[in-house]
Write a protein that binds this DNA or RNA. Structure first.
Lengths: 335, 335
DNA sequence: CTGAAAGCGCTTACAG
DNA sequence: CTGAAAGCGCTTACAG
């Protein structure tokens, strides 16, 4: 019944255009050594037949997949979205495409998202997650780390935002508003460690007492809520909180609401990441922008330059974060 | 300097294991017709050489990519995450992998995420987005629609949640709480249309006056905020709102806060999707669960059954949604 | 159970 | 500018 027409191949195109298949290949690769009329004929045949080169064949014959793999933590935590945009913008001009893999999704199936990427023969790996052991030593392929990570990957390039500076700036902002009882709720991982250090820098410099609460490696809303409850229980005199990220800050807002504290009148809160969440009408969360789009752009540059020169020494790019003042901070209330 | 060792091929494995390459291929494909000792030898060689079959070669020679493409709207809107989980669980057993493409990301680069998938020769396409013209007529390949869509795709299977029923249930819940002034803020697309219809069903059945506000096709937090401002401006007597989704509901919460209305005392709000957002301590949003994980599981089944029998007629699976009562609804206050 | 052969759909030199 | 040839790394019949 249904005439299962197989997909057109380069042979079909060549025949329809009345040229050899090599010529079709040249047109596909935008070679300048093709006469205009022939090129037009080939293009017409391609359109006519709805021809699309087989990626598998192209990759196998060309010896290059033209794709870079990016590993993220978890689709639910959307901080990576702007990173991806930047990456793609930076890579598209070089004809490289992106394949993204979510670590939490793969947990149940494959042991490591890396396996898939290695089979695909990706040109490079961008890690927007804490590297696994396997990722640390898959030295066959260029690795670019996006963001601050706790574990090092030998030989990898790094593009990150200066989380330590960002946290320091956030605390300095709170101090300038008169706060002295400032707590920090934190999760785990490299970024968290840097943010903790920045918090400590600023508190020490001002001679203030540090109070850091961590109940989990995670940085979810619920963890932020739990940390805040614990913090407010142990130190009710707290007037300001720096959260490890925006999700945790949202948890802090929940805990404050539950405790009957008004934000920012009774309690100032600063998040981190400048996620879409932070810019909602309901939250208007003061936060630190880690400039993820720029992060992606720089990571793309590192991919390209390493592909161009595999021997070059590892680079490290550090972006300056920006404090975004919205509505969750106020001068301390001397009641 | 650095001895750029090329990746091991099936030949290297065969040689290391002292067998022919066909035998290696058989082991890779888990053929039962391989003796235990030889299989062990091959497995050892694979491990030793860190061999990973080239996906490109496998796909080209086998004539099958073993991957299904799924198109989503936008990584920022995380409703698709559970869908993906369900899909992957359902597909993994059949050895199929998933490739996901975000429409908004591709907007700037390729004309259509479909192009990439067609080049990859995906086995099937799962659309978790409003189909583009190109997607509607790429009849070469099985298409499964996930969720309610405004545009039809000829011959496609459909797995969706009964959005019309869900919205009706939500309104009936509000009516049972004594509300009569119930507004609906809506966006665009197939799901929105169904939810609007469900709202109308319930309002008509109760003899209540409908009030639907739409300011955009989008369903973002900001749009929810704008719709709510408009609704409260036009009809200040409103005591309850059904939002098109959870993001819009969050916008509604923001608008309510700004207007000095207390939720749920002055205003009851119901969202839709049961997204992670809705379950935060701060929001505790009453919402409708569209059961996205089950959606993914059913869509996976449709993929598999269609792959097994390309000739079978199109299926339609409709899942029953669940009202999730949390803290944003209260009996109407007869002040 | 095993090995030699052909072929998947392309690209890449290499002669003309 | 163009065409015949070899090869990318696998899988799939097909003889033994």
């Amino acid at each position: 019944m249904a005439a299962e027409r197989r997909r057109a191949t380069i042979y079909d195109v060549a025949q329809a255009a009345g040229v050899s298949k090599s010529l079709v290949s040249l047109v596909l690769r935008d070679s300048p050594s093709v006469s205009a009329p022939r090129r037009a004929a080939v293009l017409a045949a391609i359109k006519e037949l709805d021809y699309r080169p087989s990626q598998a064949a192209t990759a196998l014959a060309g010896g290059t997949s033209q794709t870079v793999g990016v590993v993220i933590d978890d689709y639910t935590n959307t901080w990576f979205v702007e990173l991806l945009r930047g990456l793609q913008e930076g890579l598209a001009s070089a004809g490289l495409r992106i394949a993204v893999s979510d670590r939490s999704l793969n947990t149940h199936i494959e042991s490591d998202p890396l396996d898939g990427f290695l089979s695909t023969r990706v040109e490079a790996l961008v890690l927007a997650t804490e590297p696994t052991e396997a990722m640390r030593f898959s030295s066959q392929i260029p690795v670019i780390i996006a963001g601050n990570r706790a574990t090092e990957v030998p030989g990898a390039d790094i593009t990150s935002s200066d989380d330590r500076l960002g946290a320091r700036r956030a605390i300095e902002h709170l101090i300038s508003l008169g706060h002295t009882q400032i707590g920090h709720i934190a999760g785990g991982g490299g970024a968290s460690m840097q943010r903790i250090a920045g918090y400590q820098d600023a508190m020490k410099a001002a001679g203030l007492t540090e109070r850091i609460v961590t109940v989990s490696e995670l940085t979810t809303e619920d963890i932020g809520y739990q940390c805040t409850r614990q913090l407010l229980g142990e130190a009710p005199e707290t007037t300001a909180i720096l959260a490890g990220n925006d999700s945790m800050a949202m948890g802090a807002l929940g805990a404050a609401q539950e405790a009957g504290l008004l934000v920012p009148k009774d309690l100032s809160i600063i998040g981190y990441d400048n996620s879409p969440l932070s810019d909602t009408h309901l939250l208007q969360l003061t936060t630190v922008d880690s400039r993820n789009h720029a992060l992606g752009l720089h990571a793309a540059e590192q991919v390209l330059s390493r592909l161009a020169d595999p021997e070059r020494t590892a680079q490290r790019v550090l972006l300056e974060p920006l404090l975004i003042e919205r509505s969750t901070c106020a001068p301390v209330c001397n009641a």
